[in-house]
Design a protein around this nucleic acid. Structure first.
Lengths: 144, 144
DNA sequence: CATTCTATTCGACAATTTGTAGAATGTCAA
DNA sequence: TTGACATTCTACAAATTGTCGAATAGAATG
């Protein structure tokens, strides 16, 4: 039947990062840290691309504070500024804020569906998180 | 202390729609349907803007299938293609998919935090949704 | 029918974001 | 000094969104 949200925009709506940006962060998350050349090699092994292209985008990620740049011996070394979890957390907080402004209930329903489809085991953890959060809120309400 | 995700990009990361796009959909969601002129009037009452600007963006939303355009008597009438809930559901599905590819656990945690902050009462509904979903999954697993 | 509003569509330009990469410049060792 | 390698600069292209004026199409009126 074809999803209505498709094909209208370049990347779709949920895209946080561009393709190359994502590739770079993936390399960094998997290696922990890397030189520009290493990142380039890794991406180059999958598709044709110029070194400077990769360097440029790494630089941009650095400016966005997604990547840290530190001087190594004779070469810069790049590190992810956040772990995957931290990153996902920060970004989703932003995104969800936008969505919640439109409709919290619609977002909740989708969230559960999505989770059930892709990470069914996470459902239990989510249930647990909710319980914890509720308890935490009670404690806070208590202390007043 | 200042969120690290701020100020780097024009709009921030979670933005699904541009400002004017959002304003237009908001008008449509609140009125149910409206002519171009009506939408324009509504937005114009809050800030200076040209009629054609609004019309152009309505047209773009129509092409994205966010808005339906139907011939009324002598004037076109626009309607939201989705309710707020549907829209939030569809969009968040997309977004969450992206985020989950990065980290499901980070996203879950943020989700709960966000919900607790902005719509605390939704927490119970979410817990309920999870339970329902789990039961549904059990039933499906059962039938095999 | 010609004139005059009003509605709608077109075409354009600006700013931002992301991808792309060559040119220029910097660094360090032989 | 001369290479070889590293890093930065500069630029362009395509998309997206905001912004409108000009042109065109339709409807209403005299």
């Amino acid at each position: 039947m074809g999803n209505i949200m498709e094909k209208n925009t370049k990347e779709g709506y949920g895209k946080i990062l561009g393709r190359l940006e994502q590739e770079i962060l993936d390399v960094l998350w998997s290696k922990g840290d890397a030189t520009g050349k290493e990142i380039f090699d890794s991406i180059k092994s999958k598709r044709e691309i110029a070194l400077t292209t990769v360097l440029t985008v790494i630089e941009r990620l650095t400016n966005k504070n997604f990547v840290k740049k530190v001087r190594g011996e004779s070469v810069y070394i790049f590190k992810p500024a956040f772990t995957k979890d931290e990153f996902a957390g920060k970004v989703s907080k932003e995104m969800l804020k936008s969505i919640f402004e439109i409709s919290a209930s619609g977002a909740s329903a989708s969230f559960v569906d999505m989770l059930a489809d892709t990470h069914p085991l996470e459902l239990d953890r989510l249930a647990f998180l909710i319980e914890s959060k509720k308890k935490e809120m009670e404690r806070k309400a208590w202390r007043r």
